[in-house]
Simulated assay, not measured.
Amino acid sequence: MQTYLVRLNEAQHHPREIVGIFAASSDEHLADMIDECCDVDSIEIADLGAGGLYWSGPVEVTLPLTYDSETGDGLRLPPDPSISEDWHQIFYDADTFWRALEPV
């Protein structure tokens, strides 16, 4: 399983805007997940490797999260996560290698 940082590509109205972080077992699996939120042709990806997000203080959220299917309440993570040192360079380095997701 590989982890990817996904952003909008340069042809979009908000280029380089973060779409999300995804873990996928194949490009087809990744494309299916991205397709839930945007057009796969509108994004580019960078391999993340080991690392993660964390909250450095209390977040007052317990797992499992609750979910109300009628209102959609409960689908949000706590605000203000920090990026692990392993991912820091990928998020902040202009030389990070970004590539289009090849059609499957």
Rank of each mutant, 00 (worst) to 15 (best):
M1K: 01
Q2C: 01
Y4R: 01
Y4T: 03
L5A: 00
L5S: 00
L5G: 00
L5W: 00
R7A: 11
L8V: 05
N9F: 03
N9G: 06
N9C: 10
E10L: 08
A11D: 11
A11P: 00
A11Y: 01
H13Y: 05
H13I: 11
H14G: 05
R16Q: 14
I18V: 10
I18D: 02
V19I: 11
I21Y: 09
I21Q: 03
F22W: 03
A23E: 05
A23Q: 08
A24W: 01
A24F: 03
S25K: 11
S26H: 08
S26N: 04
D27W: 05
D27H: 12
H29C: 03
L30W: 00
A31N: 00
D32K: 02
I34L: 07
D35R: 06
C37D: 13
C38V: 07
D39S: 13
D39K: 13
D39P: 09
V40T: 09
D41R: 08
D41E: 11
S42N: 11
I43G: 05
E44K: 07
A46V: 05
L48I: 05
L48E: 01
L48G: 02
G49V: 12
G49W: 10
G49P: 07
G49L: 09
A50N: 11
A50Y: 10
G52Q: 04
L53I: 12
L53F: 08
L53N: 10
Y54H: 02
W55V: 08
W55C: 12
G57Y: 13
G57D: 15
V59Y: 15
V59N: 15
E60L: 15
E60A: 15
T62E: 15
T62F: 09
T62K: 14
T62W: 04
T62N: 15
L63P: 03
L63M: 13
P64E: 10
P64C: 07
T66G: 12
T66P: 00
D68S: 06
S69R: 01
S69G: 04
E70Q: 10
T71G: 07
T71H: 09
G72I: 08
G72E: 13
G72T: 12
D73S: 14
G74V: 01
G74H: 04
L75N: 11
R76Q: 15
R76I: 13
L77I: 06
L77Q: 10
P78T: 13
P78I: 09
P79H: 14
P79N: 15
D80G: 12
P81L: 14
S82K: 15
S82L: 10
I83T: 14
I83P: 07
I83K: 10
S84Q: 08
E85S: 14
E85W: 13
W87S: 06
W87L: 05
H88T: 13
Q89C: 02
Q89F: 01
F91W: 14
F91T: 09
Y92F: 09
D93E: 05
D93H: 06
D93S: 14
D93W: 01
A94K: 03
A94S: 09
A94D: 11
T96F: 02
T96C: 02
F97R: 14
R99W: 02
A100N: 04
A100T: 08
E102S: 11
P103S: 08
V104H: 00
V104P: 02
